[in-house]
Amino acid sequence: MFDDLRDLYQEVILDHGRKPRNFRRLEDADRTARGDNPMCGDRMELFVKLTPDGAIEDAAFQGRGCAISMASASLMTETVRGKSPAAARELGEHFRNLAMTGTCPDCGGALEEEMERLQPLSGVHEFPSRVKCATLAWHTLNAALEGSGKEATSE
């Protein structure tokens, strides 16, 4: 009945959804932000620790939500580690493209490897109501990096 949904719910996503990586508080975080999708009830709190020169040393999150939002946050915390805030933001832009259109023609170059890791989430582009589940974590990361202290939503 649901075999064709394996494109959306690839094994990687189900796995990260069930057992999200970096699912913990960072007590010594330099930046935190909350993300909320009021419509879905997805909620997360993101923690970022920076190195002395401002790169992302560690990222972790806690929260609850659908498999897509949890998997996306989990994969994000893995891929942004070691990135400068600017690179993390650029990666987020690429990812939003991927989530909305299914491809990202300009995503080669320095971030190619990271984009490959995020590729399993590209299936959401066929599900307009689910795109924001995938992008919530990245909106929250931007809010954390800006240090605006505002709650992020992907509305």
């Binding site: 959306l8 939500g65 659908c66 498999a67 897509i68």
Partner: peptide, 8 residues
Amino acid sequence: HAHDLATL
């Protein structure tokens, strides 16, 4: 989760 279920 409810949203995953609704998509299915």
